[in-house]
Amino acid sequence: MGRYIVKRVAQSVIVLLIVTLLIFLVMHSIPGNPIRLYLGDGATTEQIEYYTEVFGFDQPVLVQYVKWLRGIVTGEWGRSICFATDITTLLPDRIVATLSVTIPSLVISVILGVLLGIIAAVKRNGWIDSLVSGCANIGMATPAFWLAILFVYILALKCKLLPVQGYTPLTEDFTLGVRKLVMPVLVLSLGSIAYYARQTRSAMLEVINQDFIRTARSKGLKERTIMLVHALHNALIPLVTVLGMSIGNLLGGTVLVEQVFCIPGIGSLLLTAILNVDYILVQDIILIMSLFALGSNLIVDILYGYIDPRIRVK
């Protein structure tokens, strides 16, 4: 197992290098000069030249890339131009803001989605199945921003139950923070609950029709044991793949919701950074997101081994 993990980590590092290099090249080929954008129209040529030199943008692209890499390793993550601060001070709060929306949402959607999926599969073709499948289809087809507007209109403006938008760190004011998070989490969850329900249902149905379920019945086991022990364990295998993708999306998949609810998360930060051609900031955010995605892939692959003994042998 240890050897396997080392190998996978080595592979991940190679992927990271390729991803960041590509982003670096793409960013530098986009028209627009971050210094000019930052200084505004009134800037003199000397000012622009001075700052260009300070940020090292006068050097060849590859040299800049290597410098950036060296910085990452030594902990010097560089400075953002448009925010005019060190990136290391900027990122943690943003990440926390995003995760405080996405993690509760993931937990809710996995638990609810899998549960609904199991129920729908066990009672297949019954009214519960029709209801769950129907709702799942509607849930998947509903655009998140429309749902967000609807929620704001009903829950915040009409019923005055929740604040309209904004973000307060939970450490500052827990109750207010939670109240502000309810709507974004809901909006983000509904689609993925539907997705998990559908995936679970089809995975379970596939397993339920297999021979070993009949064997389990022929042994006299309770239907509940058959479903929760024999069927679910096998259905988990495809579900773990889906889960892996969701974990990878924890940082990157919330740009829209962050914009609508004015949450200062990493998604909106990335958007700002791209619009301002803030090379280093974009680079650092992409690095963090890729790290997250690769890490979750690794965890999923290790999980596979635990769930499916047929993979473990190799």
Partner: peptide
Amino acid sequence: RQIRGGQIGVIFQEPMTSLNPVM
């Protein structure tokens, strides 16, 4: 359920698929 397995046992055709692969 007491009859199934307890009184009447069944051996199925496909030995490859009739056992739970993850147990």
